[in-house]
Design a protein around this nucleic acid. Sequence first.
DNA 1: GAGTGGTCTAGACCACTAG
DNA 2: TAGTGGTCTAGACCACTCC
Lengths: 243, 243
Amino acid sequence: MRRVSSPTFSPLYQQIKGLLLEGLRSGEWRPGEAIPSEVDLAARYRVSQGTVRKAIDELAAENLLLRRQGKGTFVATHGEPQVRFRFLRLAPDAGKPVVPDRQLLEFRRTRAPVELARALGLRAGDPAVMLQRRLVFAGDPVVFEDVWLPGNLFKGLTPQAVSEHKGALYNLFETDFGTRMVRAEERVKAVAADASAAKQLAVEIGHPLLQVERVSFTYGDKPVEWRRGLYKTDRYFYRSELG
Amino acid sequence: MRRVSSPTFSPLYQQIKGLLLEGLRSGEWRPGEAIPSEVDLAARYRVSQGTVRKAIDELAAENLLLRRQGKGTFVATHGEPQVRFRFLRLAPDAGKPVVPDRQLLEFRRTRAPVELARALGLRAGDPAVMLQRRLVFAGDPVVFEDVWLPGNLFKGLTPQAVSEHKGALYNLFETDFGTRMVRAEERVKAVAADASAAKQLAVEIGHPLLQVERVSFTYGDKPVEWRRGLYKTDRYFYRSELG
DNA sequence: GAGTGGTCTAGACCACTAG
DNA sequence: TAGTGGTCTAGACCACTCC
C-alpha cells in the first residue's frame, strides 16, 4: 500500500477504512463475526498496525465495528440489547424500558409510490414490501406504524417470518437478508389521531400523537427502509440527545 | 507525568484529558480562544505529543474543542452557526433553515420549584431565573417556551440583556456568564394546545403540539438549565439522528 | 520560513482473554 | 502461554496557515 501524493489528498488510513467498509458491505465478514486481527490486516494491506488501528477506530466510533480487548474486533449486530435502544427511542415516563409485543397487522407486496421511490432512490413502480404493525408495551398499544422496503432486497420476506421472529426487525433483516441498518434519520411532528390510528392505539379521534418518519441507511449511506410511525406519548416519551 | 500501575488502571491520556477539562471548566481557556499547541502541552505535562493528541482527539469528538489544521486547537463556542443547529433541532418542511426572531415575553427572578430543583441538583427554594419567550420564523410563531436557570450562576442576567442580545441564548450565557452548554437531553411528547399556547402560536385550543423538555449540561455533566417548549410542527419538523 | 495540526512508522510494553 | 486489542514513545515527514 503506497500513498499517492496528489492534489486530492486522501490519508492511507482512510483508504484502509474504505477497504474494510467494502468487506463489510460485501459480506466478507458477517454481523457478529470477528474481522482479522490488527497485525493480520496490517500485513495484508502492507501498512503499519497504527494505520489499521486508526481506520478501525473510526469504524468503531460509527458503531460499525465493536472492539473487545483480548478477543478481537467484531462486526456490530442488532442482536445486542444496547443497540436496540439506539433505534427505538421510546422510553416510559416511569419504570424500566420493556420489550414490546410486536403485532403484524398487514403484509403486502406492491409497487413503490413516488414518495417512497424518491426517499429510497428507486423508480416509482419498482417492487416494494409494505408491512404494518403495532407495538404493545405491557398491554398498552403505543406504536402503530407502516414499514416500507425495496422488494428486490427482501425477496424471501414473508409475513410468517416477521410474525415468528423474536427480536427487532433489524435483527431479522441482517441475519436473513444480509442488510444491516447502520444509521437513520427521523422527522418528528405532532399530529391528531385519525380514525384508524385512534382505533389501533385506543384513543379518541383527534388525540395528539407523535408522528415519526424514518429513513434508514445501510453501509455507504444507502437508504433501504422508510417508516412512518404514530406514537402514543401519554405515558412514554421520545428520547433525544443533543451534543 | 508518570503512570500509576494500579488495580484501577487509568491511561495517561485520560489523565491528560482530565487536566484539559479542568482548564476548560475553570476558564483558563475561554470559548473561542486557542489552547496551547500540542508540543507545548506535551512539554508541560511531560508526555509525548501522541498522548496529548489522543486526549485532544476525544475532546474534539465530544465537541468541546475544535481543531484547525495549521492554526491551532480552539475552545468550542456557540458562536459558530453550525453549532446552533446541533441544539435547535427544528427545520422547515420546505426551504432553508431561517434564523428565528426571538421575543422575550416574561422574565422573573423567583425560587426553584421542587421539580426544577430535582432536575438541576438544587434545593427547592433556591434562587432561580425563569424566562418565557417565543420564536418566530419568517413571521410564523413556531416555538413558545419557558427557560429556567439557577439564579446563583446567572446573577447579572437582565431582561434587557436577553432582549438586546443577537444570537442564541447559549451564546450570551458563555460570553457573559462563563457557562458553556456542552450537551443536552430532550424528552419529546405530543400534547394538545392549551389556551395560552394556542394564543401564542396562533392555533386553536387542542391543536397538536410537540412538547420538548430539555436539561442542558455544562462541563462535567453538571445540569444548569431546564426548558419546556411547545413547537408548532405544521410546517416544521424536529430532526433526530439515530446511529 | 516558522509554527500548527495530521499522517505514518517501528518498537516496547501493558491489560485482557482463552486454552 | 500465546494472541488479542490498548497505551506510550520518538522521530520523520506532510498539509495548511500566516507572516
